[in-house]
Amino acid sequence: MTTTTAPKLKTSAMIASFVDPGQKTATAPFGHALVEAAAQNDKIVGLSADLAKYTDMHIFAAAFPDRFFQMGMAEQLLFGAAAGMAETGLIPFASTYSVFAARRAYDFLCLDIAEPELNVNIVGGLPGLTTGYGPSHQATEDIAIFRGMPNLTIVDPCDSVDISQAVPQLAASEGPTYLRVLRGKVATVLDEYDYTFELGKAKILHGGADVLFISSGLMTMRALQAAERLAADNIDVAVLHSPTIKPFDSQTVLAEMNTDRLVVTLENHTVIGGLFESVAAAATRVGLGKRVVPIGLPDQFLDAGALPTLHERYGLSTDRICATVRAELG
Rank of each mutant, 00 (worst) to 15 (best):
T265I: 00
R104S: 05
P243R: 03
T177R: 10
A171K: 03
P298L: 02
Y314K: 01
S164R: 09
L179C: 11
R222P: 00
L288A: 15
E117C: 12
E256S: 14
P127M: 11
A238F: 02
T131K: 10
P308C: 08
A306D: 15
T130Q: 01
K24S: 11
T324E: 03
Q76K: 14
A62E: 15
P294C: 03
I245Y: 08
V253M: 11
V189C: 13
S164F: 08
A282T: 11
T25N: 14
G330Q: 13
T188H: 06
M85A: 13
F68T: 00
V35G: 07
D66Q: 09
I122G: 06
V181Y: 04
F93E: 00
A105W: 05
A86C: 14
A39T: 14
Q169W: 10
S160D: 01
V181Q: 05
P150N: 11
E75S: 08
N119M: 05
R103G: 08
V325P: 02
Y97H: 11
A28F: 03
A49T: 12
Y314W: 03
A139D: 09
R180A: 04
A39P: 00
G89R: 14
L47W: 09
A306Y: 15
V123T: 07
A231K: 15
K246P: 02
N41W: 06
T3A: 10
Q300T: 13
V253E: 09
K290F: 07
R67P: 04
P308E: 12
K290P: 02
L218C: 10
D299Q: 10
V19A: 12
I204K: 15
L205R: 03
G200I: 05
M71Y: 08
V99L: 07
D162G: 03
V99Y: 05
A209K: 13
G296D: 12
G128N: 04
A139Q: 04
G184D: 04
Q169A: 12
D142S: 15
T177M: 05
A86R: 09
K246I: 12
G46V: 07
L275D: 03
S173G: 04
P168G: 00
F213T: 11
D236C: 03
N151K: 15
A139N: 06
Q40K: 15
G289Q: 12
P298M: 00
G305D: 12
K201I: 01
I145C: 14
E87R: 15
T309L: 14
L212W: 09
E198Y: 02
L266P: 04
L316G: 02
D194I: 02
L182N: 11
M73G: 10
F108C: 10
T284Y: 13
L129T: 05
A38Y: 05
K203R: 13
T25E: 14
Y133P: 05
S98D: 02
R103T: 07
R180Q: 08
A282W: 11
A187T: 01
L329S: 03
P127N: 12
I163M: 07
T130A: 02
I44W: 14
